[in-house]
Amino acid sequence: MLNVKRRELVVPGELVAEGDYLLGEGLFRDGREIYSSVVGLVDIRGRKVRVIPLQGRYVPKPGDKVIGIVIDAFYYGWILDLNSPYTGTLFASDLLGRKVDFSREDLSEYLEAGDAVFVKVKEVDELMHVSLEADKWGMGKLKRGKLVEISSAKIPRVIGRGGSMISMLQGVSGCRLRVGQNGRVMVWGRDLKRVNAIVEALLMIEREAHTTGLTDRVREFLEKRIGGK
């Protein structure tokens, strides 16, 4: 039995439902009752219930693609800041996709402190030690562009349903985007003005993430910014 409507705003400790539901994020069970643990909007799909959080830190999950920033290098790899309470470890072999002989190679050729890297979360153990990999196509060091940091809770909106928002952003501006689940977005393109327009559009998406018809409004905004040179 549901106690709230779809898309209703709930606060921590609010009764969402009773009975056999499959719990997604932002919920916890106490006996038969299901309560929200965060401020967010209720999302119901059949027997599945979750609360879409409106705030909160990014926590690494296996399979997530994120943008990390190298904060330190050690003998066989690097430590990356993930815009999260936890840092990630990237081994040189997981970046290069081959065996690395550390006595012959100088790792600073590949990455140095301050570099932005597009990586995939390979594994997270129970103590939240995060291991990363970046040996697939399209992963690895991001050599240029502007890095924008927004709340990780708003990233699904930057991507849009089925990628609608991100393909619109790229299509209208001709810029390229790389979106990390951890709230970081790298934008690059030939025209700096267009890149800046995308940065502004991203901040607009963050501000207005929970309004309807956002894709159209962002498109309008972008076309105006780019058209009026």
């Binding site: 606060v11 921590p12 400790g13 916890f28 643990s37 965060v38 705030q55 909160g56 809770a153």
Partner: peptide, 11 residues
Amino acid sequence: MADGGIPMRDL
């Protein structure tokens, strides 16, 4: 804490 998105059982 609720505003910061920290998961809580209650206020």
